[in-house]
Design a protein around this nucleic acid. Structure first.
Lengths: 253, 253
DNA sequence: CGAGTTGAGGTCACGATGACTTTAACTTGC
DNA sequence: GCAAGTTAAAGTCATCGTGACCTCAACTCG
């Protein structure tokens, strides 16, 4: 193998949590950013992360970053993408070029409350950050990274029960719907949402109800499925093994 | 940044093409493998790849590997995953630990015909390779990697027009259907397939027909959409309320 | 020229979806 | 203590995509 001097492998993490928007009060996506204290991009906001310790797995490194910046362990952690353009918006430094493997994570708001906001760490509204949000661009290519992470989250919540990762053990269907609405930025019909969630069987009623609500008390639910891991080592491979000519036609597209 | 001695970043590529199965004659997925001539895993089959040249983008490196092993340029190239477990099945060598960014590609069979099969390179049937295929395990964690690439391809063909990447400029709907059948290993109803493909408007008739078929001559079609790139830098971010279709289909839960 | 084969277009029942309505169950204001 | 307000929960209805299946079209081959 060649000497790869001038190449550093870093791991960054996009950490999502839902909190009320400071102006509107509506639930929105937040994430912690770190102010850079060194060149390049000194003074600019960046995704938390750092160089990969050769003794750590990639996911372990992401978890460490999460612990370091928020004091928390994620309820969902997934690899987003490996960014490796030669010049990632000035990422070629004295130490050379940087390839970043980016993870994204979901943490629960009740835990985010308790989170320790370290020095140079600040939680900000995801859609108001960087050049896309009308603010100063993030360091490196982190504008692109964040945009991609948001797109992935917003797409994935539509076909995967990851919304549950934003919620505590017991929750109402209204709370689950509010997570979907906050993430997708669309209002949903409560009745239809209920019907679809119950049909998907991803939640089960606990039998208990939430009291003191100034209206009819809603039933409480809990997760009925594990939040799926996207770790390739755990991917279940459905194998129809051999193509049988007798197989009934199925769907497409 | 820390010194990352003992860490190498490699790029490997899973290259898919469709060819008839040697026994059954049915269309199946093939991929080129490289026999390792060095330790570790000397003599075992491995995915083509190599260490990342600090002057190359990640995708550029994947393209180079493709050119080196097949002499071809891909019609589709997408990043699969970054594999970085500390001990990737014996990947810790004298040179230290290896993190691999894996890409997967689609090349057309007519081009694969012309492909130069280099020394120690052999095209093999994807489902009969490695431990999952009942053969000797691939080098490193490449069994897992290949399994994951197959799962991604089989999932993605269901909601993305990547099947077109397996076909030449002009093709019949039957040929397109055979691509789907070969990849998903399911037979499809021709009439329903036609209806859905035409509704998706991913293909358009050329007005020409295929002659000499011993039956009614089928119409020829061409692509009506570009085969989408999954490059995050090119992801279109739909602004106020529309979910980006970065990935899979619709439906809730 | 008829048999065989596949293309092309159509029908039909079913299930999921979105828009909407109705009733239930609680709290708060008067 | 009762009406008003609010949200939960359940149901209705038209529409649309889907899978299963049918019929006719258009070619070659024996």
């Amino acid at each position: 193998m060649t000497e790869q001097r001038g190449l550093t492998l870093a791991v960054s993490t996009v950490i999502f949590a839902l909190r009320p928007h400071p102006d509107t009060g509506r639930l929105t996506l937040w994430l912690p950013l770190v102010r850079r204290i060194r060149e390049p991009f000194r003074g600019r906001w960046a995704l938390p992360g750092g160089p990969l310790d050769p003794a750590d797995d990639l996911a372990t490194s992401a978890r460490r970053t999460l612990e370091r910046t928020t004091g928390l362990a994620p309820h969902y952690l997934e690899q987003l993408y490996a960014f490796g353009a030669v010049d990632r918006s000035g990422a070629v430094t004295d130490e050379g070029r940087v390839v970043s493997v980016v993870y994204w994570a979901i943490i629960r708001p009740d835990e985010a409350e308790r989170s320790v906001v370290g020095e140079n760490v600040e939680w900000q509204v995801a859609d108001e950050v960087g050049a896309w949000g009308g603010a100063a661009p993030l360091a490196f290519d982190h504008d692109t990274v964040l945009r991609y992470a948001l797109a992935r989250l917003r797409a994935k919540i539509g076909y995967s029960p990851i919304a549950l990762a934003f919620l505590t053990e017991e929750f109402t269907l209204a709370a689950l719907r509010e997570v979907h609405e906050a993430v997708t930025q669309r209002t949903l019909d409560p009745a239809n949402f209920r019907r679809q969630v119950l049909a998907a069987k991803t939640v089960a009623p606990t039998g208990r109800r939430l009291a003191g609500t100034a209206h009819r008390p809603p039933a409480l639910y809990r997760r009925a499925v594990e939040i799926p891991s996207s770790d390739p080592a755990r991917v279940t491979v459905t194998e129809p093994t051999h193509p049988a000519d007798t197989d009934p036609p199925k769907g497409l597209s």
